Amino acid sequence: MTREEALSILKEYTKSESLLKHAFAVEAAMRAYARKFGEDEELWGVVGLLHDFDYEKFPDEHPMKGNEILKDKGVPEEIRTAILGHASYTGVPRETLMARALFAVDELCGFLVAVTLVRPNKSIGEVKVKSVKKKLKDKSFAAKVNRDEIKQGFEELGVPFEEHVEFTLKALSAIAPELGLNP
């Protein structure tokens, strides 16, 4: 599956600017991790783009409904299984490095964008791991972000927390304007 095909599906089902930006953030982080691990950057990017494509239209059935839609469109099982695994409640195990990476970056990307948006100049390049740690401890900040899943994610991926945050910040910095942020 090409990025263009994935983008077409994403935009067919997702109209919310914030959800589109989230998909682009997760795509950027997935592509960066694919490069780091010597994996297929296009494949990992597609998974990042599509992981929440069904959420806006089918929030109560996400990502199971998305899996059905993607299956009907002939999307490979490898992609669909990774997407199913990013939601712990599906019970689908994250058996591949790609699936573990998706789980590890999904909640973190949302959190890092939130941390950046409260900064005076909205510059993701100025966000430091220390400030991310501090904001994670503040349960009222970005309250919908599942902190346990952020922790579980970097542990499953086998990357230390500080390194994971720094790496993901760098990936998002590369597309900051696309995310509505300053570099």
Results as ranks from 00 to 15, higher is better:
Ala99Ile: 00
Ser18His: 08
Glu5Tyr: 03
Asp52Asn: 10
Glu27Val: 10
Thr2Val: 09
Val132Arg: 00
Val113Phe: 04
Leu181Tyr: 01
Val47Cys: 07
Met1Gln: 01
Lys130Met: 12
Thr81Trp: 00
Gly91His: 10
Phe111Lys: 01
Ser123Met: 09
Leu19Tyr: 02
Ile124Lys: 01
Leu172Val: 02
Leu50Pro: 09
Phe58Glu: 08
Tyr55Trp: 08
Gly91Ile: 13
Asp54Leu: 12
Lys122Tyr: 01
Phe24Pro: 12
Ser16Gly: 15
Ala23Arg: 03
Val115Tyr: 00
Glu42Ile: 06
Glu166Trp: 08
Phe24Ile: 10
Glu17Ile: 13
Val132Tyr: 00
Ala87Phe: 14
Val113Ile: 06
Leu108Tyr: 04
Ala143Phe: 15
His86Ala: 07
Val47His: 01
Leu84Ile: 04
Lys36Pro: 02
His62Ser: 11
Asn146Ser: 15
Lys130Ile: 11
Gly125Ser: 11
Glu156Ala: 13
Ser123Trp: 04
Ile9Gly: 09
Ala101Gly: 08
Ile9Ala: 13
Pro63Leu: 04
Val118Cys: 14
Glu78Leu: 11
Thr81Asn: 07
Asp54Met: 10
Glu155Tyr: 15
Phe37Gly: 06
Asn146Val: 14
Asp40Glu: 05
Asp106Arg: 00
Glu77His: 04
Lys144Glu: 10
Val46Tyr: 01
Lys71Ala: 08
Phe167Met: 08
Gly91Thr: 07
Lys144Phe: 13
Ile79Glu: 02
Glu149Ser: 15
Asp40Gln: 05
Val47Phe: 04
Arg147Phe: 15
Lys36Asp: 03
Val113Met: 04
His164Gln: 09
Leu136Lys: 11
Lys65Cys: 14
Ala23His: 05
Glu95Ser: 10
Gly85Leu: 01
Tyr55Cys: 12
Asp40Gly: 14
Asp72Leu: 05
Ile9Ser: 08
Gly45Asp: 11
Met30Glu: 04
Asn121Ile: 08
Gly180Tyr: 00
Phe167Trp: 06
Pro120Cys: 09
Phe167Thr: 06
Val129Pro: 00
Gln152Lys: 13
Asp72Phe: 06
Arg35Tyr: 08
Ala32Glu: 05
Leu112Ile: 06
Ala142Leu: 10
Phe58Arg: 02
Phe58Asn: 12
Arg100Ala: 09
Leu7Asp: 11
Phe37Trp: 06
Arg119Ile: 00
Asp40Phe: 03
Ala32Gln: 02
Leu20Tyr: 08
Leu49Asp: 09
Lys170Gly: 04
Val26Tyr: 02
Glu156Gly: 14
Met98Thr: 03
Ala28Arg: 01
Gly48Pro: 02
Ala6Gly: 09
Asp54Gly: 10
Glu178Trp: 05
Phe103Gln: 00
Leu20Gly: 11
Pro93Tyr: 08
Met98Leu: 08
Lys71Pro: 15
Thr168Pro: 08
Val47Gln: 01
Pro160Phe: 09
Trp44Arg: 01
Asp72Thr: 03
Leu136Ala: 13
Glu17Val: 14
